[in-house]
């Protein structure tokens, strides 16, 4: 461990380096960015607002694409143009699809409008980032796990309208979180299960974090712990460590305690699995089997078998060592009080 002084110094030095980098390279990068746009990289929308003459307006689009228009107009993408701040910047449909003049004049020539179906993930995300890069929630997207895996925004989001938004007109109690995020699927968890379908089974395990509402939606959403757009933690955890994330709700485990159970302090995931488990309390294995992976104290009759042993009944080791996450009792060195 570094000393506090060193850490603080490193904090300060890194901050200064960052500040200098920002000052020095900020101007440079703006110039580079302009060059890359000018050199032909497709970044439609506000980046191309200078060629106003090529825009035809969303009413023109509506004439042929009424269905999509109706879907879009009630989403943030359809409504943002009504905002004073965005009125002069957003071009409605053409914000993403680029200027439509050639497309219209070509009688709907599909080659003369930006279509997202055949573009690469990087190109698709670039279009979204033209606006969304200026939000704090998306600032960590570049270099994030999902970005480097080759995913694009459109793998999870539906720009025109999410099925949830459509369903809200019919079934108004669909997931309200998913509704505002324009997710591709009806719920947030179903969106994540597109790739992480191995997690779905956790909803029905003996102990689970993914317990559900009467709508069969997980009451705890994936985004309660993870940030799909990138984060400072591993596995896209919202915080810097597994434990910091768990302490968000389980503050009583945060301590610090007089007597710490070191593996619990280092990572809750040493003993618990986060989504669902066949065992109680989301344990990776049942007690005492789990405890025996690290403890071989000979004075406990948990030996090779005897399932009817008192040490096997009920909560096993935790019948006595109930303060397994840490004890603040002067006589609690064995995590019993």
């Amino acid at each position: 461990m570094a000393s506090t002084k060193n850490i603080k110094l490193s904090f300060l030095s890194v901050f200064i380096i960052l500040l200098v980098s920002w000052l020095v390279f900020g101007t440079l990068s703006r110039a580079v960015s302009s060059e890359s746009t000018a050199s032909g990289e497709e970044v439609p929308g506000i980046a191309l607002a200078s060629i106003q003459d090529d825009y035809v307006g969303s009413e023109t689009c509506k004439a042929c694409h009424e269905g999509q228009f109706k879907n879009l107009e009630k989403t943030v993408h359809g409504k943002i143009a009504e905002s004073k701040r965005w009125k002069d910047k957003a071009q409605s449909c053409e914000s993403c699809h680029g200027p439509g003049k050639s497309h219209v004049e070509g009688g709907g020539d599909k080659t003369k409008i930006i279509s997202f179906k055949n573009r690469t993930a990087k190109e698709n995300s670039q279009s979204c980032m033209a606006c969304h890069s200026q939000t704090s929630t998306h600032a960590t997207w570049r270099g994030s796990k999902h970005e480097t895996a080759g995913l694009s925004c459109l793998d999870c989001h539906s720009v025109h309208q999410s099925p949830t938004t459509k369903a809200s007109e019919i079934a108004p109690f669909a997931n309200f979180q998913a509704e505002t995020k324009l997710l591709k699927k009806r719920t947030e968890s179903e969106t994540c299960y597109q790739c992480h379908s191995d997690v779905r089974k956790s909803e029905f395990q003996r102990s689970t974090h993914l317990f559900k509402t009467e709508n069969r939606e997980s009451r705890m959403t994936c985004s309660a712990c993870h940030d799909a757009h990138g984060s400072i933690g591993e596995k896209l955890m919202k915080t810097a460590s597994v434990n910091e994330t768990c302490y968000t709700c389980h503050t009583e485990k945060r301590g610090p305690f007089l007597w710490e159970h070191a593996p619990a302090r280092e990572s809750c995931a040493n003993c618990h699995t986060s989504h669902g488990s066949n065992h109680v309390s989301l344990l990776k294995a049942r007690s005492p089997m789990l405890c025996q992976q690290c403890h071989m104290q000979g004075r406990h009759q948990t030996v090779a078998g005897k399932p009817i042993s008192a040490f096997m009944k009920n909560r096993g080791c935790l019948n006595c060592h109930a303060q397994i996450h840490g004890s603040n009792h002067p006589s609690g060195i064995n995590l019993q009080r």
Partner: peptide
């Protein structure tokens, strides 16, 4: 913080 650097590079 993040800053975009030349050669399409971002430091964060």
């Amino acid at each position: 913080a993040f800053v975009d650097l030349p050669h399409n590079t971002r430091a964060a």
